[in-house]
Design a protein around this nucleic acid. Structure first.
Lengths: 343, 343
DNA sequence: TTGTAGGCGTTATCAG
DNA sequence: CTGATAACGCCTACAA
């Protein structure tokens, strides 16, 4: 029951011309009589002719398809990025093949393989949490295969990256807490192997240092999963056991911030009076929480759009990887809401 | 700078055998000496051979790729569906090409065209709000092209659909509020032209009737945009002006429920003591609200997974469209949380 | 202005 | 057990 698509041959046979004539007529090549062009186009329309992109890909070794590898689709930030990718790809005539790794390295590798099999023209990648060695990517980069990394970017020479300014976003958020009068600011951090976690940690530390706050290592707690339950557990433990208690939390993501808020409420602490909280990512739910959660907004759509533009420019050789800068940094925006405004 | 992929021919040349031999050896066809097999496989490995899926597609007129057309990616429910789609597709060896229509009919049509050009094996579609005539789909269905619709399904004969049971979900939610002792249960409804809005309204009304509650039309308020601000405004107005005040709200979506909760808090009403609230969709943030929001969970992942399984079964001719039922209804699940438990 | 032939990478078919 | 050939649909040098 397959779709019987008309081919160039069909048109040619019907019109008693050669298939090259049809091919040329359809593409308005010079040296084809207007008469023939007209007839060909008319019949093509009538037969509902549609060029076979697969045949074209084979011929040109170009698929006009880009592969997107992402940890999770059900994730506000990433879905926003996908939206940006899709938008630009569509407008420039490219298809988007999508896979999610579910944070599994094995799946990431296997996706790379199938996508390469499918002759994609380039990759857009945000790698999984399990990914610590980048051979499966650097091998491709060495061969000159177009890859643009976004958000989670590797520390490989010559890789092209699009990131947000995690350091600055983190710095601003921490500074904001300090200016609000919070002093014992803890940091719920992400998985330390991720560069974004490191950057956010650095920004936090820099802000504290710059404002003369002496902090201890015990103020930084890693939350590898980064969901609200994990953060809640950890926060409860801190609030119950630590002798010197925190008066604010800067969290590496919003879900962790929710966990912190839950724990505080459970312990009878008032936000923002007793404890200030700031998250990261500005998920939709920030405004829905009580109190509303201050957060560092990441420009997801813009990141997807930018990464795609760069990738397509590389593919179409409008820019040369070697000559261009290789890390594009997008600005974050601190959105101050009730959870961190003491005064 | 293109990736120079080794082909079967390369292996053949190197080994001084024909390409058919290599092809057969790689696929463990019978009638190839173990010796040859070993040599071929070894070299293939060494040359990092990867079959060209494009060539295969051309040969077999099958691309092992399915096209997904969805209104919006940045939407919790849809992103969950995508996740389900991706999961099943991946495990059965299919690729997923994705486009979002942004609720535009023109974009929907154009996506259908490019995907067909790309020789996809089938479609998974949730159509746009602008789509009122389905010629671009029914034409394909008539030709026997595999399409499965989900969530937003057309009223076309023979179309295969996957939906959730909005009526029942709505009924259960309303019944739950009644059993909790709420009596004046208002309904914040969605855009009345959407089938899901109608179904949810029907379920609500049926539950009230079945439990002997006389309700008035004024209890149903349409919230066309369906976001929290709109719902908040409307709720405030109700709470301020109505002489007979509601003691519960059943909302057609979670964002509206958030608006209701905000309004109640602003008016000094306690949830769930004074006002019970139930939402619909079970967005991630339900558990993060204070109090946590009861909601009717729609099985998005399951919907994506189910739709994909059916589609692939149709593609692989494991089932015949004509012989199978054509609408699959998935059950919702009422998740009772604090916002609606009075007792 | 149009036609012919070859090839993109693969596999099915028919010969050896 | 292995090889040659044709074909999937399209494009493009080269020929006419």
């Amino acid at each position: 029951m397959k779709l019987e698509q008309a081919t160039i041959k069909d048109i040619a046979r019907e019109l008693n011309v050669s298939s090259s004539t049809v091919s040329r007529a359809l593409k308005d090549y010079p040296g084809i009589s207007d008469e023939t062009k007209r007839k060909v186009k008319e019949l093509a329309e009538k037969m509902n002719y549609r060029p076979n992109a697969i045949a074209l890909s084979l011929r040109k070794s170009r698929s006009f398809t880009i592969g997107v590898i992402i940890p999770e689709v059900v994730h506000f930030f990433f879905s926003t990025v996908i939206s940006g990718i899709e938008e630009v790809a569509f407008s420039r005539g490219y298809n988007v093949i999508l896979t999610q790794t579910n944070e599994k390295l094995a799946r990431e590798k296997s996706s790379v393989d199938t996508m390469l099999s499918n002759q994609i023209d380039g990759f857009l990648v945000s790698y999984s949490k399990e990914t610590t060695d980048f051979n499966h990517f650097s091998r491709l980069l060495d061969q000159g295969f177009p890859i643009v990394f976004f958000d989670r970017v590797p520390e490989i020479e010559d890789s092209v990256n699009v990131v947000v300014d995690d350091f600055k976003g983190s710095y601003e958020a921490s500074k904001h807490l300090i200016l609000q009068g919070y002093r014992r600011i803890y940091h719920i951090s992400g998985p330390v192997q991720l560069k974004i976690s490191k950057e956010r940690l650095r920004g936090y530390q820099a802000a504290l240092e710059d404002h003369g706050i002496k902090f201890e290592n015990s103020w930084v707690i890693e939350c590898p999963r980064g969901d609200e339950n994990e953060a809640k557990e950890i926060t409860l433990e801190i609030l119950k056991t630590n002798s010197e208690k925190p008066d604010a939390f800067f969290c590496h993501n919003d879900m962790a911030a929710v966990g912190v808020m839950m724990a505080c409420k459970e312990m009878g602490l008032k936000i923002p009076q007793d404890i200030g909280v700031v998250g990261f990512s500005n998920w939709q739910f920030c405004t829905m929480l009580d109190p509303s959660l201050s957060s560092v907004a990441q420009p997801g759509f813009k990141m997807g759009a930018k990464a795609t533009e760069i990738l397509l420019d590389i593919i179409e050789k409008k820019i040369n990887t070697k000559e261009t800068q290789n890390t594009f940094v997008l600005d974050t925006e601190l959105l101050v809401r009730k959870s961190s405004v003491k005064i």
